[in-house]
Amino acid sequence: MKSIILQTATRYLLPILLLFSFFLLFRGHNSPGGGFVGGLVAAAAYALYSIAFGVEEAKKLLRIEPVYLIATGLMFALISGMIAFFSFDTFMTGKWSDFNFPLFGKLGSPLLFDLGVYVVVIGITLKILFTISEEVKP
C-alpha cells in the first residue's frame, strides 16, 4: 500500500517528529515529556516511515540494528548510575553540573539516564515492529 501522498507527507513528517521527540526528551525534566514519551514518538516516526516506504527502507534509514540501540541505551543508564562512584557516593546518586549550558540548561547524570531510556525505548519498539513485519511479509 504505497501511496504518494503518504510518502511525501512522511518525508516531511519524519524529521519534524524526530525533532519533536528530542524536544520532548530534553524538556522532560521540567515540563511534560521525558525519555519514555520521546522514545515512543521517535519510534512512531520510523514506524510511519516503514508503513509508507516499507520496512527495508526504514531499516536502511535507521542504519543501526535496533538491538544495538537497546544495548547502548542500557549502557547509558548504567553509566549514569556509576557517575556517582567518582565522588564515592552510592550507585545512582544524581550528579549535576554547576553551570548552565546554552539550550539544555543544567546537565546531570539523570539526564543521561533519561537519554538511555529514550534510546532503549526506540530500540525496543523498532525491534518488535521490524521483527513482526518481517515475519508478516513472506
Partner: peptide, 11 residues
Amino acid sequence: TAIVIGFGVQA
C-alpha cells in the same frame, strides 16, 4: 512505566 511495559508484554 506500566503503560510502556504493558506494550512490551502485549507485543
